[in-house]
Nucleic acid binder design. Structure first.
Lengths: 211, 211
DNA sequence: GCCTGCGGTAGACAGTGTCAACTGGTGATT
DNA sequence: AATCACCAGTTGACACTGTCTACCGCAGGC
């Protein structure tokens, strides 16, 4: 009887409207950008009333927090799926490449994690849980490095912070089209990833250099 | 006669309403955050009609672009006011310290420059002009460095990009309270600036180490 | 003396997030 | 079995936003 209804999208088959909201939110953000995400738009696309999503999320920030949380999850999964290497040095390089590659291939997710005016981390701890985990991957990788001259004095977390700063800074800078307006030639930009990783290697005391 | 009017603020004495708008916008952003800036609020505070600012700015983005442009100007000025040193190495260190210090002391301006969803750089070239200038300060500083083993092959812009990535990444990471939720102890955070600068020095081949 | 333009006002419109009240159905309690 | 509570969803409002359009007064140039 009611099968003829031309619902805008699938009638969110089961009671998984919450799930559908999050997915649709991702889609909207991907199409129209982060700040043009509106719960009303999401509801409209899902063919439900403008207030329906609020039965599953207390506020706009809460749905955003969930979206960001999934971005962190996705990111951590990507880092873990990097080509593994028995050599800690090389493995860390793989992680660095994976990091920058992720930022380039999934600018949407990356923006969500780091660039977006996030909905107050303190208020959404479950969101930061995933962030913690992703960061721990880097720290663990660094702890596996062969001992360097200063490794006794320098905690791995500090080096993790350094490496993360470099990677995040580069990814962040590359993503914005700032560099094009800074008239940096494309040929140089293509080298950037490899070069920054090279410099990081130097900073950490690449073994084949100190030997 | 009309002196008794309790105008919300000064009656923007001259025809410098445009100027007053920008200043008030800064104030609003400082108080309520970047995205709660509304031209209506600005107009209200200035005691003019909600449409008055639009006589000076075509759109909300245009006033934001002007605000961001001034942030860049302010930032470049701060970098230039750093303690100067005849030694290029030390001078560059001073610049790095100034960079991080600015990010810490003027989080509002820093956010405006780098974290904010900016109003399409391509559409507001005068905004990016200031950005270019600030970046050139760094590049020039690097070009003044004593020649290193690879300075022939590596253009200064690439190293500028590396250094900027590190600095921006660190500043960006430190500004968000992400690190506190990442349970990094305060004592470590206090060392972060100096440590990252130290690592950058190593990466660039600190002279007293290669000698 | 007119007329044009510029800075300002006032009113409308389509959006938005969010609050409040209502509704229909389902599961548990009595 | 009847009742009750709750829960997902609906509708309607409110205040707020950016932006469009029309209006108004007053300056200066012809």
């Amino acid at each position: 009887m009611t099968t003829g209804k031309p619902k805008p999208k699938r009638p969110h088959s089961e009671q998984d409207l919450r799930e559908a909201c999050v997915e649709e939110a991702f889609r909207v953000i991907g199409e129209s950008g982060i700040d043009s995400l509106s719960l009303r738009e999401v509801a409209r696309r899902l063919g439900v009333s403008h207030q329906a999503p609020y039965k599953h999320f207390p506020s706009r920030d809460h749905i955003l927090a969930e979206v960001v949380r999934r971005a962190y999850m996705n990111f951590a999964g990507y880092l873990e799926a990097r080509p593994r290497s028995a050599d800690p040095e090389e493995d860390l390089g793989n992680m660095g490449r994976a990091y920058l590659q992720y930022a380039r291939e999934h600018p949407l997710h990356y923006t969500l994690m780091f660039e977006t005016k996030k909905p107050d981390p303190a208020a959404h701890p479950e969101m930061m849980q995933q962030a913690k985990y992703a960061f721990s991957l880097l720290t663990e990788g660094l702890k596996r490095l062969p001992h360097r001259h200063d490794s006794a004095r320098i905690p791995a977390e500090l080096d993790a912070l350094y490496v993360w700063s470099c990677l995040h800074g580069l990814a962040s800078v590359m993503k914005g089209q700032a560099l094009h307006t800074l008239s940096m030639p494309d040929a140089m930009l293509e080298q950037a990833d490899a070069f920054v990783l090279y410099r990081i290697g130097t900073a950490l005391g690449r073994p084949d250099e100190t030997a």
